[in-house]
Measured scan of single mutants.
Amino acid sequence: EEEKYTVIYPYTARDQDEMNLERGAVVEVIQKNLEGWWKIRYQGKEGWAPASYLKKNSG
């Protein structure tokens, strides 16, 4: 089951394993960790993003 989330704040990656996020983008969360960083898939790429910048899509 894919978990789709919408980006609610833009984010600029500060590290090579982080993802740039555009507000309104829909991403797939593939791994959650306890530090508040989630691994996401977006446009065929995978990387880490701050969970607080993502909002779960309803339905």
Rank of each mutant, 00 (worst) to 15 (best):
G47V: 08
Y53T: 13
K45R: 11
I8Q: 14
A25K: 04
G24Q: 02
Q43W: 02
K4M: 13
T6V: 12
K32C: 05
I30D: 02
K55E: 14
S52D: 14
W37S: 04
G24A: 03
G24E: 04
M19T: 10
L21T: 01
Y42F: 14
K4E: 03
L34I: 13
D15W: 10
T12G: 07
K4S: 14
R23K: 15
E2M: 15
G47F: 09
Q31V: 08
Y5H: 06
T12P: 06
I40F: 01
G59F: 05
A49G: 05
Q31W: 04
A49F: 11
P10Y: 02
P10A: 15
L34F: 13
N57A: 08
E28M: 04
I40H: 01
I30M: 06
N33R: 12
V26K: 03
K56D: 07
L54I: 04
K55V: 10
P50F: 01
E2S: 13
D17R: 10
S52N: 15
G44E: 02
M19Y: 04
I8F: 05
R41A: 03
G24T: 02
G44F: 02
G47D: 01
P50I: 01
E3R: 06
Y11K: 03
V7F: 03
K4C: 12
R14W: 05
Q31E: 14
K56W: 08
E35Y: 06
N20F: 07
D17W: 06
L21G: 00
E3Y: 10
Y5P: 00
G24D: 10
D15K: 13
Y5I: 02
I30Y: 03
I30T: 13
A49T: 09
E1K: 08
W38S: 14
P50G: 01
Q43C: 12
K4T: 11
E35D: 14
I8K: 13
Q43H: 10
P10I: 00
E3Q: 14
D15N: 14
Y11P: 02
V26Y: 03
Y53C: 15
I40W: 01
W37C: 15
P50W: 03
W38F: 04
D15I: 07
K56Q: 06
G24I: 00
D17I: 09
L34T: 14
E22P: 11
Y53W: 04
R14S: 12
V7T: 04
V26H: 07
E3I: 13
K55S: 07
P50T: 01
W37L: 02
Y11C: 14
K55A: 06
E2T: 14
R23F: 06
L54Y: 00
N20R: 08
E28S: 11
Y42G: 05
K45S: 09
V26N: 06
L34D: 15
A51Q: 09
Q43R: 12
A13H: 07
T6D: 08
R14T: 09
I40R: 00
S52P: 04
N57P: 07
E22W: 03
R14G: 11
V27P: 00
G36D: 12
V7I: 07
E18D: 06
M19E: 01
A25S: 08
M19C: 09
Q16T: 09
S58M: 09
A49D: 00
G47I: 07
D17K: 09
P10L: 01
G24F: 02
Q31P: 00
L21E: 00
E1I: 12
I8H: 08
A51F: 04
P50N: 06
Y11V: 15
K32D: 09
V26R: 05
E46L: 09
G24V: 00
N20V: 08
D17A: 12
T6N: 07
W37A: 00
V29R: 01
R41K: 15
K45T: 03
A51H: 09
N20L: 04
E1V: 05
A51P: 14
N57F: 15
V29P: 02
L54S: 00
G44Y: 05
Y5C: 08
A13G: 14
G24R: 01
Y5G: 01
D15H: 14
A49R: 01
D17L: 07
E46Y: 07
V27S: 00
Y42H: 11
Q16C: 08
P10E: 08
E18V: 07
E2A: 10
A13K: 10
E2L: 08
G59R: 06
Y5L: 02
N20P: 07
E46H: 08
P10S: 12
Q16N: 11
G59H: 13
S52W: 04
Y9Q: 15
R41V: 05
E18S: 12
D15S: 12
K55M: 02
K55H: 04
E46P: 02
G47M: 04
A25R: 04
V7Y: 01
E18Q: 13
R41Q: 03
E28Q: 11
I8L: 14
N33C: 08
I40L: 05
A51C: 11
K56A: 11
R14P: 11
K45W: 04
N57Q: 13
L21C: 03
A25F: 04
K45I: 08
L21I: 06
L34W: 03
R41E: 01
E22F: 06
V26M: 14
V29L: 08
Y9T: 15
V29H: 00
A13L: 06
N57E: 12
P10F: 01
L54M: 06
L21R: 00
N33K: 14
G24K: 03
A25M: 13
S52C: 04
S52Q: 14
P10D: 11
K32F: 03
K45V: 14
A25C: 06
E22L: 04
N20Q: 05
G44V: 00
A49Q: 01
R23V: 11
Y11R: 14
V29W: 00
Q16A: 14
K55Y: 05
G44A: 04
K55T: 11
T6Y: 06
K45N: 14
E35V: 12
N57D: 13
G47Q: 15
E35T: 15
V29K: 01
W48C: 05
V7M: 03
N33D: 13
E28W: 04
P50L: 02
R41G: 04
Y11W: 09
V29T: 02
S52E: 15
E28L: 06
E28H: 09
E28V: 11
E18N: 11
V7C: 09
E2K: 08
Y42T: 07
N57S: 12
K32I: 02
P50R: 12
V26T: 08
K55I: 07
P10T: 12
Q43F: 06
A49S: 03
E2V: 07
Q31D: 11
E18L: 07
M19L: 11
R23C: 07
I40N: 01
S52Y: 04
I40S: 00
E1D: 04
G47Y: 04
S58L: 11
E28K: 07
K32R: 12
Q43K: 04
N57H: 11
P10Q: 15
G36A: 05
E46M: 12
W37D: 03
A51T: 09
Q16M: 09
Q31F: 07
Y42C: 13
K45L: 10
Y53D: 02
A49Y: 07
G24N: 10
G36K: 14
T12M: 04
Q31S: 12
V7H: 00
L21S: 00
E2Y: 06
G36S: 10
M19N: 03
R41S: 12
M19I: 14
G47C: 11
N57W: 10
K56V: 10
E3W: 03
Y53F: 08
K4G: 07
R23E: 13
R41Y: 03
V7E: 00
S52G: 13
V7R: 01
G24P: 00
V26A: 07
Q31R: 08
A13N: 04
N57R: 08
P10M: 07
S58P: 14
S52L: 03
W48G: 02
Y9F: 13
A13R: 05
R23S: 09
K32E: 07
E35G: 11
A25W: 08
L54F: 13
Q31L: 07
L34K: 11
A51K: 13
D15G: 14
E3L: 11
E35L: 10
E1Q: 00
Y53G: 11
K39N: 01
A49M: 13
W38G: 02
G59C: 09
